[in-house]
Structure formats: structure tokens, C-alpha cells
Design a protein around this nucleic acid. Structure first.
Length: 273
DNA sequence: GTGACCACCTGGCCGC
DNA sequence: TGCGGCCAGGTGGTCA
């Protein structure tokens, strides 16, 4: 599942192949993937636009076009592939962007969870979804005081708050488990009961875990691979995620799996009391 | 405003 | 071998 490090890897790969290419045709075979505007307007407006740059905000990939930003969220299993325009459409390839060089950028999504928005450039940060995102992990304004303010009324588990994209954007389930393990913080602890020191630890470990994951090309869990078919290597660096029944690398206690906020949660009951 | 729950969706896995 | 049921998970919507 693509999280921030995977999205960063995919964005960089796509950037190398897409910048300065014009979209001359499009085919949307599963309209529900288009969140805004409607599929018909999306197709009408995007044809003729040139891709000038790619960037990332949270888990969103931003394609900068002439008049719009195309925002793409891969959710669980979305991925991009390059094909020739006459290549047959494979199963789960739901959207094709035809480029002027004859190549097609195809969006493939087994579970159809991904979403796309086409936003006018002047509205990019005034309009959903970017208007509702919290701080990037590397934002200078992200500090323990910011988190304390955001969490002061929240009695939900800290694990659930870490997944809230309106607080810190880019953290997904895998990395939330790893961040809390490194900080020796119990995932079920109420968000508003953490000390400034613990919040500071969370911020430090968030940067550390995500930077390390980006350097490794992301984490390969079941279906994830980058647009060029490259698998992430960060899975080899995971401490607790998916390790139930194995032993903690620090104290040797058995890693426990439980559910927090409906998400699979892995932790060491001794280190993370 | 907050938190819990559900829907979206399909493939993989497990038990029978 | 085949079938049914459960699980995985990010996000948005609904409801209490």
C-alpha cells in the first residue's frame, strides 16, 4: 500500500518520464475514480494540457498542467504503468492518458479505491482535498507544541491520531506502528495524555522512519511496487509491522497484534507500556 | 466538535 | 478441488 515514501518514489519515477509531455487523449473506464469534477468534464478539460512538473503533498501526487493540477491518490493499490497506445488494456487498468509521443500512462487499481481531482491552479490550496491536510513531517512548524494543541481535545488512541491526515499528513498504518515502537509509546494511549517530550519523540521518529523508507524506495507490502515495477526494500527494516509472533529486537518479548481504530496494530507489550 | 462505525472494492488466505 | 467467509486498508460520509 503506497504511503508517503512510496508516493515519493513513484512521483520521482513518473517525473522523469512525463515532464513536458502533452496529454492528447484520455479514456476513463471506471468513472468513480474521478472525484472532482465529474468524469465527463475531467476528460474534456484535461485533453490538450501539458505536464510541466510533478510534486507531492501528503499521499497525493500533484501533476502540474497548463491550467490545472491533476491530483492523484493511490489509496490501497493504485499504480501507474507505461504502455504503448496499441497495447491491449489489461485487467484493472481503469484510466489511460495518451501522450503525444504515442505512449500511454495507465492507472491501474485492483480495488478501485484510488481517487483523482482536477483542480484549477488558483484554487489548489483553497479547495479539497489539499485545503484539509495537516503539516508535512518536515514542516518547520511541526513541533511538540503544535501536536499538543491539535491533540488536546482528543481522547482517541495516539495511533488513530497519527493516521489523521489533518494533523500530520503522509503517515499510514505501517509507519504509525513503526514510529510508536521507536518512541516506546503504547498505540492505545490517549492522544491528549502524551507529554511534550513524547510528542517530540514522535516527530523525530516520524522523520527518521519516513526518510529511511524513502531512501529504501518504500515498503513492499503485498501489492506495492513503483511505476517502473521496482519493489521497495524498507520491509526488511520493519521492527513490528506484520511481525506478530516474532520477538522484539530490543527486549525479546513477543510482538502482539491487536486492532486500534479498526486498523491492524503491532507493538511490543514490554517496550511500549 | 468528537468518536464510532460503515461503505467502497478485490484478491489472498483459511477452514470446511 | 471448490466454495464461502473473513481480512487487509485510506478516506469520506453518516449518525449518536
Amino acid at each position: 500500500m503506497p504511503e508517503l515514501p512510496e508516493v515519493e518514489t513513484i512521483k520521482e519515477t513518473l517525473k522523469q518520464k512525463l515532464v513536458n509531455h502533452k496529454i492528447v487523449g484520455i479514456s476513463v473506464r471506471y468513472p468513480n475514480l474521478i472525484e472532482y469534477p465529474n468524469s465527463h468534464d475531467f476528460e474534456k478539460e484535461i485533453v490538450g494540457e501539458t505536464i510541466h512538473d510533478l510534486s507531492r503533498r501528503g499521499k497525493w501526487i500533484l501533476f502540474e498542467l497548463d491550467h490545472y493540477y491533476l491530483l492523484s491518490h493511490l489509496r490501497m493499490e493504485g499504480r501507474y504503468l507505461f504502455r504503448r497506445s496499441n497495447d491491449p488494456i489489461q485487467k484493472h487498468e481503469h484510466i489511460s492518458f495518451l501522450l503525444e509521443n504515442g505512449e500511454e500512462l495507465r492507472y491501474k487499481d485492483t480495488r478501485k479505491f484510488g481517487r483523482m481531482h482536477l483542480i484549477a491552479k488558483e484554487n489548489l490550496y483553497q479547495q479539497k482535498p489539499l485545503s484539509e491536510l495537516g503539516l508535512e513531517p518536515w514542516d518547520k512548524e511541526l513541533n511538540a507544541k503544535y501536536l499538543k494543541t491539535k491533540l488536546k481535545t482528543k481522547s482517541i488512541p495516539i495511533k488513530t491520531s497519527l493516521l489523521d491526515q489533518s494533523i500530520i499528513t503522509g503517515i499510514g498504518n505501517i509507519y504509525a506502528n513503526e514510529i510508536l515502537f521507536l518512541g516506546k509509546i503504547n498505540p492505545m494511549k490517549s492522544s491528549n495524555q502524551l507529554t511534550l517530550k513524547q510528542l517530540d519523540t514522535i516527530i523525530c521518529n516520524t522523520k527518521k522512519v519516513l526518510e529511511n523508507a524513502i531512501a529504501q524506495g518504500g515498503t513492499t507490502i503485498r501489492s506495492y511496487e513503483s511505476s517502473e515495477g521496482v519493489h521497495g526494500r524498507f520491509q526488511q527494516n520493519l521492527y513490528v509491522h506484520g511481525k506478530q509472533g516474532e520477538f522484539c529486537s530490543i527486549c525479546g518479548t513477543e510482538i502482539i497484534k491487536t486492532t486500534v481504530g479498526g486498523r491492524g496494530t503491532y507493538y511490543c507489550p514490554k517496550c511500549q507500556k
